[in-house]
Design a binder for these strands. Structure first.
Length: 481
RNA sequence: GGCCCUGUCGUCUAACGGUUAGGACACCGGUCUUUCAAGCCGGCAGCAGGGGUUCGACUCCCCUCAGGGCCGCCA
Protein backbone atom coordinates (compact mmCIF):
# COMPACT_ATOMS: atom_id res chain seq x y z
CA UNK A 1 0.00 0.00 0.00
CA UNK A 2 1.31 3.39 -0.97
CA UNK A 3 0.07 6.44 0.85
CA UNK A 4 1.44 9.88 0.06
CA UNK A 5 0.44 13.35 1.08
CA UNK A 6 0.82 17.02 0.42
CA UNK A 7 0.91 19.06 3.59
CA UNK A 8 0.71 22.75 2.80
CA UNK A 9 0.65 25.58 5.28
CA UNK A 10 -2.25 27.91 4.57
CA UNK A 11 -0.21 31.06 4.98
CA UNK A 12 -0.60 32.85 1.69
CA UNK A 13 -1.49 32.49 -1.94
CA UNK A 14 -1.53 28.97 -3.36
CA UNK A 15 2.07 28.35 -4.36
CA UNK A 16 3.33 26.77 -7.54
CA UNK A 17 5.82 24.79 -5.48
CA UNK A 18 2.96 23.22 -3.53
CA UNK A 19 1.36 22.11 -6.77
CA UNK A 20 4.66 20.73 -7.98
CA UNK A 21 5.23 18.56 -4.94
CA UNK A 22 1.55 17.61 -4.82
CA UNK A 23 1.67 16.45 -8.42
CA UNK A 24 4.51 14.01 -7.80
CA UNK A 25 2.93 12.70 -4.62
CA UNK A 26 -0.35 12.30 -6.45
CA UNK A 27 1.28 10.43 -9.31
CA UNK A 28 3.02 7.92 -7.07
CA UNK A 29 -0.11 7.15 -5.08
CA UNK A 30 -2.34 6.83 -8.15
CA UNK A 31 0.12 4.64 -9.93
CA UNK A 32 0.20 2.17 -7.10
CA UNK A 33 -3.49 2.27 -6.48
CA UNK A 34 -2.79 3.88 -3.14
CA UNK A 35 -4.12 7.01 -1.50
CA UNK A 36 -3.11 10.61 -1.76
CA UNK A 37 -3.88 12.73 1.27
CA UNK A 38 -4.19 16.46 1.76
CA UNK A 39 -3.31 17.64 5.23
CA UNK A 40 -3.39 21.24 6.32
CA UNK A 41 -0.45 22.20 8.51
CA UNK A 42 -1.83 25.23 10.28
CA UNK A 43 0.17 25.06 13.47
CA UNK A 44 1.28 28.65 13.03
CA UNK A 45 -1.79 30.43 14.31
CA UNK A 46 -0.32 33.83 13.50
CA UNK A 47 -0.08 33.28 9.80
CA UNK A 48 -2.62 30.61 8.91
CA UNK A 49 -5.92 31.61 7.41
CA UNK A 50 -9.07 29.88 6.15
CA UNK A 51 -8.96 32.02 3.01
CA UNK A 52 -5.56 30.65 2.12
CA UNK A 53 -6.74 27.11 2.80
CA UNK A 54 -9.70 27.55 0.45
CA UNK A 55 -7.47 28.92 -2.26
CA UNK A 56 -5.13 25.94 -1.97
CA UNK A 57 -8.03 23.51 -2.37
CA UNK A 58 -9.27 25.35 -5.42
CA UNK A 59 -5.89 25.68 -7.04
CA UNK A 60 -5.06 22.00 -6.69
CA UNK A 61 -8.47 20.97 -8.02
CA UNK A 62 -8.01 23.38 -10.90
CA UNK A 63 -4.90 21.44 -11.84
CA UNK A 64 -6.81 18.19 -11.71
CA UNK A 65 -5.10 17.00 -8.55
CA UNK A 66 -7.63 15.32 -6.27
CA UNK A 67 -7.16 13.76 -2.87
CA UNK A 68 -8.71 10.75 -1.23
CA UNK A 69 -8.59 12.10 2.28
CA UNK A 70 -8.50 15.67 3.49
CA UNK A 71 -10.17 18.34 5.60
CA UNK A 72 -12.97 18.85 3.10
CA UNK A 73 -13.57 15.22 2.12
CA UNK A 74 -12.89 13.51 5.41
CA UNK A 75 -11.34 10.07 5.79
CA UNK A 76 -10.42 7.41 8.32
CA UNK A 77 -7.73 9.52 9.95
CA UNK A 78 -9.71 12.71 10.41
CA UNK A 79 -9.28 15.46 11.32
CA UNK A 80 -6.85 16.47 8.58
CA UNK A 81 -6.26 19.93 9.87
CA UNK A 82 -3.47 20.07 12.42
CA UNK A 83 -5.10 22.82 14.42
CA UNK A 84 -7.80 20.27 15.23
CA UNK A 85 -5.33 17.67 16.42
CA UNK A 86 -3.45 19.50 19.17
CA UNK A 87 -4.22 17.00 21.95
CA UNK A 88 -2.59 14.30 19.86
CA UNK A 89 0.66 16.21 19.62
CA UNK A 90 0.71 16.99 23.33
CA UNK A 91 0.24 13.33 24.16
CA UNK A 92 3.03 12.38 21.87
CA UNK A 93 5.33 15.01 23.22
CA UNK A 94 4.76 13.58 26.70
CA UNK A 95 5.43 10.13 25.38
CA UNK A 96 8.77 11.31 24.10
CA UNK A 97 9.62 12.94 27.42
CA UNK A 98 8.73 9.73 29.21
CA UNK A 99 10.98 7.79 26.89
CA UNK A 100 13.82 10.22 27.44
CA UNK A 101 13.84 11.34 23.83
CA UNK A 102 12.69 14.83 24.70
CA UNK A 103 12.89 17.16 27.69
CA UNK A 104 11.26 20.30 29.02
CA UNK A 105 13.17 23.54 28.63
CA UNK A 106 12.47 26.60 30.73
CA UNK A 107 14.75 29.06 29.01
CA UNK A 108 13.22 32.40 28.17
CA UNK A 109 13.06 33.87 24.71
CA UNK A 110 15.40 36.59 25.90
CA UNK A 111 18.00 34.06 26.87
CA UNK A 112 17.65 32.26 23.57
CA UNK A 113 17.88 35.47 21.59
CA UNK A 114 21.01 36.46 23.47
CA UNK A 115 22.47 33.02 22.95
CA UNK A 116 21.79 33.15 19.25
CA UNK A 117 23.28 36.59 18.94
CA UNK A 118 26.37 35.53 20.82
CA UNK A 119 26.84 32.50 18.62
CA UNK A 120 26.45 34.60 15.54
CA UNK A 121 28.90 37.20 16.77
CA UNK A 122 31.41 34.53 17.69
CA UNK A 123 30.82 32.83 14.34
CA UNK A 124 30.27 29.69 16.28
CA UNK A 125 29.91 26.77 13.90
CA UNK A 126 27.56 25.15 16.39
CA UNK A 127 24.40 27.20 16.20
CA UNK A 128 21.46 26.28 18.37
CA UNK A 129 20.39 25.54 21.88
CA UNK A 130 23.19 25.00 24.37
CA UNK A 131 21.37 22.28 26.27
CA UNK A 132 21.18 24.14 29.57
CA UNK A 133 17.87 22.58 30.61
CA UNK A 134 18.91 19.11 29.65
CA UNK A 135 20.69 18.67 32.93
CA UNK A 136 17.64 19.38 35.06
CA UNK A 137 16.68 16.23 36.98
CA UNK A 138 13.39 14.75 35.80
CA UNK A 139 11.76 15.19 39.17
CA UNK A 140 12.65 18.85 39.41
CA UNK A 141 11.53 19.49 35.88
CA UNK A 142 8.20 17.82 36.53
CA UNK A 143 7.71 19.92 39.63
CA UNK A 144 8.44 23.14 37.79
CA UNK A 145 6.04 22.17 35.04
CA UNK A 146 3.39 21.32 37.60
CA UNK A 147 3.91 24.71 39.17
CA UNK A 148 3.00 26.27 35.87
CA UNK A 149 6.41 27.55 34.90
CA UNK A 150 6.45 28.42 31.17
CA UNK A 151 8.41 25.93 29.11
CA UNK A 152 8.77 24.21 25.77
CA UNK A 153 9.54 20.59 24.97
CA UNK A 154 12.74 19.94 23.09
CA UNK A 155 14.08 16.99 21.17
CA UNK A 156 17.00 15.36 23.00
CA UNK A 157 19.49 14.94 20.20
CA UNK A 158 22.35 12.53 21.04
CA UNK A 159 25.41 14.55 21.96
CA UNK A 160 27.82 12.43 19.99
CA UNK A 161 27.94 10.24 16.94
CA UNK A 162 25.93 10.78 13.85
CA UNK A 163 22.42 10.29 12.61
CA UNK A 164 22.09 8.46 9.33
CA UNK A 165 19.00 8.61 7.19
CA UNK A 166 18.06 7.50 3.71
CA UNK A 167 16.90 9.59 0.83
CA UNK A 168 15.49 7.58 -2.05
CA UNK A 169 17.35 9.62 -4.65
CA UNK A 170 20.49 10.51 -2.74
CA UNK A 171 21.11 7.39 -0.74
CA UNK A 172 22.56 7.57 2.72
CA UNK A 173 22.75 11.01 4.30
CA UNK A 174 24.87 11.45 7.41
CA UNK A 175 24.65 14.23 9.96
CA UNK A 176 26.92 15.01 12.89
CA UNK A 177 24.75 14.95 16.00
CA UNK A 178 26.69 17.77 17.61
CA UNK A 179 25.45 20.05 14.89
CA UNK A 180 21.80 19.11 15.17
CA UNK A 181 19.80 21.50 17.31
CA UNK A 182 17.61 20.32 20.15
CA UNK A 183 14.57 21.28 18.16
CA UNK A 184 11.56 22.70 19.97
CA UNK A 185 8.72 20.23 19.50
CA UNK A 186 6.05 21.84 21.61
CA UNK A 187 5.89 25.61 21.94
CA UNK A 188 5.27 27.31 25.25
CA UNK A 189 1.65 27.83 24.31
CA UNK A 190 1.29 24.08 23.97
CA UNK A 191 1.15 24.18 20.18
CA UNK A 192 3.36 21.78 18.27
CA UNK A 193 6.01 22.92 15.84
CA UNK A 194 6.08 21.61 12.31
CA UNK A 195 8.58 18.89 13.10
CA UNK A 196 6.53 17.17 15.77
CA UNK A 197 3.14 17.53 14.13
CA UNK A 198 4.44 16.47 10.75
CA UNK A 199 6.12 13.30 11.95
CA UNK A 200 3.29 12.30 14.28
CA UNK A 201 0.69 12.79 11.57
CA UNK A 202 2.65 11.07 8.86
CA UNK A 203 2.93 8.05 11.10
CA UNK A 204 -0.63 8.09 12.37
CA UNK A 205 -1.97 8.57 8.87
CA UNK A 206 0.06 5.70 7.51
CA UNK A 207 2.13 7.72 5.09
CA UNK A 208 4.56 5.39 3.34
CA UNK A 209 6.44 7.90 1.17
CA UNK A 210 7.35 11.37 2.30
CA UNK A 211 7.96 13.24 -0.92
CA UNK A 212 8.76 16.83 -0.17
CA UNK A 213 10.99 19.69 -1.25
CA UNK A 214 14.76 19.65 -0.89
CA UNK A 215 14.72 22.47 1.64
CA UNK A 216 13.73 19.85 4.20
CA UNK A 217 16.89 17.80 3.92
CA UNK A 218 18.51 19.64 6.78
CA UNK A 219 15.57 18.68 8.99
CA UNK A 220 15.75 15.06 7.97
CA UNK A 221 17.93 13.93 10.90
CA UNK A 222 15.53 15.52 13.38
CA UNK A 223 12.66 13.72 11.77
CA UNK A 224 14.54 10.43 11.71
CA UNK A 225 15.36 10.89 15.39
CA UNK A 226 11.69 11.49 16.10
CA UNK A 227 10.61 8.29 14.39
CA UNK A 228 13.28 6.40 16.31
CA UNK A 229 12.37 8.14 19.54
CA UNK A 230 8.81 6.93 19.16
CA UNK A 231 9.97 3.52 18.04
CA UNK A 232 8.20 3.88 14.72
CA UNK A 233 9.16 2.59 11.32
CA UNK A 234 10.39 5.33 9.04
CA UNK A 235 8.71 6.10 5.74
CA UNK A 236 10.63 6.37 2.49
CA UNK A 237 12.01 9.88 2.23
CA UNK A 238 12.40 11.50 -1.15
CA UNK A 239 13.43 15.11 -1.53
CA UNK A 240 12.45 16.85 -4.73
CA UNK A 241 14.63 19.57 -6.20
CA UNK A 242 13.58 23.14 -5.55
CA UNK A 243 12.02 25.15 -8.35
CA UNK A 244 14.30 28.07 -9.15
CA UNK A 245 14.18 31.64 -10.35
CA UNK A 246 16.20 32.51 -13.44
CA UNK A 247 19.12 33.41 -11.15
CA UNK A 248 18.88 29.93 -9.59
CA UNK A 249 17.74 31.05 -6.17
CA UNK A 250 14.72 29.31 -4.67
CA UNK A 251 11.65 30.41 -6.61
CA UNK A 252 10.11 33.51 -5.04
CA UNK A 253 7.43 36.02 -5.74
CA UNK A 254 9.90 38.83 -6.00
CA UNK A 255 11.41 37.28 -9.09
CA UNK A 256 8.69 35.09 -10.54
CA UNK A 257 4.94 34.69 -10.42
CA UNK A 258 4.49 31.95 -7.84
CA UNK A 259 0.78 32.12 -7.15
CA UNK A 260 -1.29 29.56 -9.01
CA UNK A 261 -3.91 32.28 -9.14
CA UNK A 262 -1.62 34.21 -11.43
CA UNK A 263 -1.41 31.40 -13.92
CA UNK A 264 -5.10 30.74 -13.87
CA UNK A 265 -5.89 34.40 -14.30
CA UNK A 266 -3.31 34.84 -17.07
CA UNK A 267 -5.04 32.13 -19.07
CA UNK A 268 -2.77 29.17 -18.68
CA UNK A 269 -4.67 25.94 -19.10
CA UNK A 270 -4.48 23.66 -16.11
CA UNK A 271 -3.45 20.77 -18.36
CA UNK A 272 -0.52 22.76 -19.71
CA UNK A 273 0.50 23.97 -16.28
CA UNK A 274 0.39 20.47 -14.86
CA UNK A 275 2.27 19.10 -17.86
CA UNK A 276 4.97 21.72 -17.50
CA UNK A 277 5.37 21.07 -13.78
CA UNK A 278 5.81 17.37 -14.51
CA UNK A 279 8.72 18.32 -16.75
CA UNK A 280 10.60 19.92 -13.89
CA UNK A 281 13.13 17.26 -13.01
CA UNK A 282 11.32 14.49 -14.80
CA UNK A 283 10.68 13.29 -18.32
CA UNK A 284 8.99 10.35 -19.99
CA UNK A 285 11.07 7.14 -20.14
CA UNK A 286 11.78 7.72 -23.84
CA UNK A 287 13.54 10.92 -22.84
CA UNK A 288 11.84 12.84 -25.60
CA UNK A 289 8.08 13.07 -25.13
CA UNK A 290 7.24 16.38 -23.53
CA UNK A 291 3.52 16.55 -23.99
CA UNK A 292 1.42 14.11 -22.04
CA UNK A 293 -1.77 13.86 -20.06
CA UNK A 294 -2.09 13.41 -16.33
CA UNK A 295 -3.05 9.78 -16.95
CA UNK A 296 0.05 9.19 -19.03
CA UNK A 297 2.16 10.83 -16.38
CA UNK A 298 0.73 8.59 -13.69
CA UNK A 299 1.18 5.50 -15.84
CA UNK A 300 4.84 6.21 -16.58
CA UNK A 301 5.95 7.86 -13.37
CA UNK A 302 8.88 6.64 -11.33
CA UNK A 303 10.58 8.52 -8.54
CA UNK A 304 13.91 7.11 -9.66
CA UNK A 305 13.83 9.12 -12.88
CA UNK A 306 13.81 12.42 -11.05
CA UNK A 307 16.72 14.71 -11.84
CA UNK A 308 18.41 16.39 -8.89
CA UNK A 309 19.54 19.70 -10.35
CA UNK A 310 17.22 22.55 -9.37
CA UNK A 311 15.15 23.36 -12.46
CA UNK A 312 14.69 26.97 -13.47
CA UNK A 313 11.00 27.70 -13.88
CA UNK A 314 10.89 29.03 -17.41
CA UNK A 315 7.78 31.07 -18.17
CA UNK A 316 8.72 31.14 -21.81
CA UNK A 317 8.61 27.39 -22.23
CA UNK A 318 5.44 27.13 -20.16
CA UNK A 319 3.90 29.70 -22.48
CA UNK A 320 4.95 27.71 -25.54
CA UNK A 321 3.47 24.53 -24.07
CA UNK A 322 0.29 26.37 -23.22
CA UNK A 323 0.07 27.55 -26.82
CA UNK A 324 0.34 23.97 -28.00
CA UNK A 325 -2.57 22.97 -25.81
CA UNK A 326 -4.60 25.98 -26.86
CA UNK A 327 -4.11 25.34 -30.57
CA UNK A 328 -5.13 21.74 -30.22
CA UNK A 329 -8.55 22.77 -28.95
CA UNK A 330 -11.50 22.80 -31.34
CA UNK A 331 -13.00 26.24 -31.87
CA UNK A 332 -15.93 25.25 -29.73
CA UNK A 333 -13.64 24.12 -26.93
CA UNK A 334 -11.60 27.28 -27.27
CA UNK A 335 -14.73 29.37 -26.96
CA UNK A 336 -15.66 27.41 -23.90
CA UNK A 337 -12.31 28.21 -22.33
CA UNK A 338 -12.86 31.87 -23.05
CA UNK A 339 -16.22 31.57 -21.37
CA UNK A 340 -14.57 30.08 -18.33
CA UNK A 341 -11.94 32.78 -18.28
CA UNK A 342 -11.84 36.33 -19.60
CA UNK A 343 -15.36 36.19 -21.00
CA UNK A 344 -16.98 34.45 -18.08
CA UNK A 345 -20.51 35.65 -17.54
CA UNK A 346 -19.75 36.21 -13.91
CA UNK A 347 -16.72 38.35 -14.74
CA UNK A 348 -18.55 40.50 -17.26
CA UNK A 349 -21.36 40.98 -14.79
CA UNK A 350 -18.93 42.53 -12.33
CA UNK A 351 -17.56 44.92 -14.92
CA UNK A 352 -20.85 46.21 -16.29
CA UNK A 353 -21.93 48.13 -13.19
CA UNK A 354 -18.60 49.92 -13.21
CA UNK A 355 -18.75 51.13 -16.78
CA UNK A 356 -22.44 51.36 -17.67
CA UNK A 357 -23.04 54.87 -16.35
CA UNK A 358 -19.91 56.16 -18.01
CA UNK A 359 -20.65 55.18 -21.60
CA UNK A 360 -23.12 56.29 -24.26
CA UNK A 361 -22.76 53.51 -26.79
CA UNK A 362 -22.37 49.77 -26.42
CA UNK A 363 -19.50 49.78 -28.83
CA UNK A 364 -17.46 51.82 -26.39
CA UNK A 365 -17.45 48.99 -23.90
CA UNK A 366 -14.39 47.18 -25.18
CA UNK A 367 -12.34 50.30 -25.74
CA UNK A 368 -13.16 51.78 -22.38
CA UNK A 369 -12.86 48.60 -20.43
CA UNK A 370 -9.93 47.09 -22.23
CA UNK A 371 -7.81 47.11 -19.11
CA UNK A 372 -10.20 44.51 -17.69
CA UNK A 373 -9.24 42.13 -20.45
CA UNK A 374 -5.58 42.55 -21.25
CA UNK A 375 -2.67 41.24 -19.26
CA UNK A 376 -0.39 44.20 -19.09
CA UNK A 377 -1.50 47.76 -19.78
CA UNK A 378 0.64 50.22 -21.66
CA UNK A 379 1.41 53.68 -20.36
CA UNK A 380 1.24 56.51 -22.87
CA UNK A 381 2.73 59.98 -22.42
CA UNK A 382 -0.13 61.24 -20.32
CA UNK A 383 -0.25 58.12 -18.19
CA UNK A 384 3.44 58.33 -17.47
CA UNK A 385 2.97 61.91 -16.42
CA UNK A 386 0.05 61.13 -14.13
CA UNK A 387 1.83 58.19 -12.56
CA UNK A 388 3.97 60.62 -10.58
CA UNK A 389 2.35 63.24 -8.31
CA UNK A 390 3.12 66.90 -8.99
CA UNK A 391 5.50 67.25 -6.11
CA UNK A 392 6.99 63.78 -6.32
CA UNK A 393 9.68 62.02 -8.27
CA UNK A 394 9.53 58.79 -10.25
CA UNK A 395 11.90 57.17 -7.79
CA UNK A 396 9.74 58.12 -4.82
CA UNK A 397 6.66 56.85 -6.58
CA UNK A 398 8.33 53.58 -7.43
CA UNK A 399 9.38 53.18 -3.82
CA UNK A 400 5.90 53.96 -2.56
CA UNK A 401 4.22 51.52 -4.92
CA UNK A 402 6.72 48.80 -4.05
CA UNK A 403 6.15 49.39 -0.38
CA UNK A 404 2.39 49.34 -0.83
CA UNK A 405 2.70 46.10 -2.73
CA UNK A 406 4.82 44.35 -0.18
CA UNK A 407 3.43 45.71 3.05
CA UNK A 408 -0.28 46.02 2.35
CA UNK A 409 -1.24 44.20 -0.83
CA UNK A 410 0.76 40.99 -0.86
CA UNK A 411 -0.46 39.83 2.53
CA UNK A 412 -4.12 40.56 1.71
CA UNK A 413 -5.90 37.32 0.89
CA UNK A 414 -9.49 38.55 0.80
CA UNK A 415 -9.28 40.85 -2.15
CA UNK A 416 -12.36 43.03 -1.73
CA UNK A 417 -13.06 46.71 -2.20
CA UNK A 418 -14.17 47.08 1.39
CA UNK A 419 -10.83 45.76 2.59
CA UNK A 420 -8.75 47.54 0.00
CA UNK A 421 -9.93 51.04 0.80
CA UNK A 422 -8.79 51.20 4.42
CA UNK A 423 -5.62 49.43 3.44
CA UNK A 424 -4.72 52.03 0.84
CA UNK A 425 -5.72 54.92 3.07
CA UNK A 426 -3.53 53.49 5.78
CA UNK A 427 -0.69 53.09 3.32
CA UNK A 428 -0.96 56.72 2.26
CA UNK A 429 -0.65 57.77 5.86
CA UNK A 430 2.18 55.39 6.55
CA UNK A 431 4.07 56.64 3.52
CA UNK A 432 3.28 60.27 4.21
CA UNK A 433 1.48 60.65 0.91
CA UNK A 434 -1.71 62.57 0.20
CA UNK A 435 -4.37 59.94 -0.34
CA UNK A 436 -5.40 61.45 -3.64
CA UNK A 437 -1.84 61.34 -4.94
CA UNK A 438 -1.37 57.71 -3.99
CA UNK A 439 -4.74 56.70 -5.38
CA UNK A 440 -3.96 58.37 -8.69
CA UNK A 441 -0.61 56.66 -8.98
CA UNK A 442 -2.19 53.32 -8.24
CA UNK A 443 -5.06 54.01 -10.62
CA UNK A 444 -2.79 54.87 -13.50
CA UNK A 445 -0.44 51.99 -12.73
CA UNK A 446 -3.36 49.58 -12.74
CA UNK A 447 -5.27 50.84 -15.75
CA UNK A 448 -3.00 53.06 -17.80
CA UNK A 449 -5.63 55.78 -17.43
CA UNK A 450 -6.31 58.74 -15.20
CA UNK A 451 -10.06 58.40 -15.67
CA UNK A 452 -11.49 55.08 -14.54
CA UNK A 453 -14.31 53.59 -12.52
CA UNK A 454 -13.88 53.83 -8.73
CA UNK A 455 -10.45 52.53 -7.77
CA UNK A 456 -11.28 49.93 -5.13
CA UNK A 457 -14.10 48.34 -7.07
CA UNK A 458 -11.85 48.26 -10.10
CA UNK A 459 -9.10 46.62 -8.08
CA UNK A 460 -11.49 44.03 -6.74
CA UNK A 461 -12.63 43.08 -10.22
CA UNK A 462 -9.12 43.04 -11.65
CA UNK A 463 -8.10 40.71 -8.89
CA UNK A 464 -4.97 40.51 -6.83
CA UNK A 465 -2.74 38.90 -9.41
CA UNK A 466 -3.37 41.40 -12.16
CA UNK A 467 -3.00 44.29 -9.75
CA UNK A 468 0.23 42.92 -8.42
CA UNK A 469 1.56 42.35 -11.90
CA UNK A 470 0.72 45.81 -13.19
CA UNK A 471 2.03 47.55 -10.11
CA UNK A 472 5.33 45.78 -10.59
CA UNK A 473 5.35 46.76 -14.22
CA UNK A 474 4.65 50.38 -13.32
CA UNK A 475 7.52 50.34 -10.86
CA UNK A 476 9.73 49.09 -13.65
CA UNK A 477 8.54 51.86 -15.96
CA UNK A 478 9.19 54.42 -13.26
CA UNK A 479 12.71 53.18 -12.80
CA UNK A 480 13.32 53.58 -16.50
CA UNK A 481 11.99 57.14 -16.42
C1' G B 1 30.73 31.24 8.99
C1' G B 2 29.02 25.85 9.79
C1' C B 3 26.40 21.64 7.89
C1' C B 4 24.09 19.51 3.75
C1' C B 5 22.46 19.01 -1.45
C1' U B 6 23.57 19.75 -6.57
C1' G B 7 26.65 20.53 -11.33
C1' U B 8 25.35 17.98 -19.72
C1' C B 9 23.82 23.69 -24.82
C1' G B 10 21.40 30.53 -22.15
C1' U B 11 16.92 27.29 -20.15
C1' C B 12 14.28 22.10 -19.43
C1' U B 13 16.47 17.49 -20.28
C1' A B 14 18.38 12.21 -22.84
C1' A B 15 22.76 9.21 -22.09
C1' C B 16 22.24 3.52 -17.14
C1' G B 17 31.78 2.74 -19.42
C1' G B 18 32.23 2.33 -25.97
C1' U B 19 27.05 7.69 -29.47
C1' U B 20 29.51 12.35 -34.90
C1' A B 21 26.84 13.80 -26.84
C1' G B 22 20.15 13.17 -28.77
C1' G B 23 15.43 16.05 -28.09
C1' A B 24 12.64 20.57 -26.50
C1' C B 25 12.27 26.11 -25.37
C1' A B 26 14.69 30.58 -26.78
C1' C B 27 17.59 32.65 -30.75
C1' C B 28 19.08 32.88 -36.18
C1' G B 29 18.05 31.40 -41.24
C1' G B 30 14.76 29.13 -44.89
C1' U B 31 9.88 27.29 -46.44
C1' C B 32 4.56 27.75 -46.75
C1' U B 33 1.34 32.12 -46.83
C1' U B 34 -2.44 38.45 -48.85
C1' U B 35 -0.35 39.69 -43.42
C1' C B 36 0.80 37.78 -38.68
C1' A B 37 0.97 33.50 -36.21
C1' A B 38 1.06 28.26 -36.42
C1' G B 39 3.42 24.25 -39.16
C1' C B 40 7.63 22.24 -41.68
C1' C B 41 13.13 22.26 -42.80
C1' G B 42 17.94 23.82 -41.30
C1' G B 43 21.54 26.34 -38.07
C1' C B 44 23.98 28.21 -33.48
C1' A B 45 25.05 26.24 -28.73
C1' G B 46 26.88 21.88 -23.68
C1' C B 47 29.63 17.22 -20.65
C1' A B 48 32.47 23.34 -14.59
C1' G B 49 38.09 22.46 -13.89
C1' G B 50 41.98 19.10 -12.34
C1' G B 51 43.59 14.46 -10.89
C1' G B 52 42.84 9.30 -10.71
C1' U B 53 40.34 4.01 -11.90
C1' U B 54 39.84 1.57 -16.74
C1' C B 55 41.73 -1.04 -23.00
C1' G B 56 38.03 2.95 -22.94
C1' A B 57 34.99 7.82 -19.25
C1' C B 58 29.41 12.73 -19.54
C1' U B 59 28.83 8.22 -16.90
C1' C B 60 32.89 5.40 -11.15
C1' C B 61 36.34 7.74 -7.10
C1' C B 62 39.01 12.13 -5.03
C1' C B 63 40.13 17.37 -4.90
C1' U B 64 38.98 22.26 -6.46
C1' C B 65 35.47 25.62 -8.17
C1' A B 66 30.52 27.18 -8.82
C1' G B 67 25.27 27.31 -7.62
C1' G B 68 21.58 26.26 -4.02
C1' G B 69 19.23 25.00 0.73
C1' C B 70 19.13 25.12 6.01
C1' C B 71 20.99 27.12 10.53
C1' G B 72 13.22 30.60 14.31
C1' C B 73 8.70 28.91 20.26
C1' C B 74 7.81 29.82 10.56
C1' A B 75 6.65 25.97 7.64
Amino acid sequence: MVRTRIAPSPTGDPHVGTAYVALFNYALARQHGGQFILRIEDTDRERSSPASERMIFEALRWLGITWDEGPDVGGPHAPYRQSERFPIYREHAELLVARGAAYPCFCTRERLDALREEQRARKDPVMGYDGLCRGIPAGEAAARRAAGEPHVIRLAVPEEGETVAQDLLRGQLRFDNRLIDDQILLKSDGYPTYHLANVVDDHLMGITHVIRAEEWISSLPKHALLYRGFGWEEPVFCHLPLLRNADRSKISKRKNPVSLEYYRRAGFLPEAMRNYLALMGWIMPDGVTEEFTLEEFVANFTLERITLGGPVFDLEKLTWLNGRYLRRLSPAEYLERLRQGPLAEEYLARIVPLVQERLDRLEDFMAYGQFFFVGEVSYDQEARARLVPKRGTPAETAAALTSLLEEELDPLLEWEAARLEPLLRGAAQRLGWKTGDLFMSVRVALTGRAATPPLFETMEVLGKELCRRRLRRAVQVLHEA
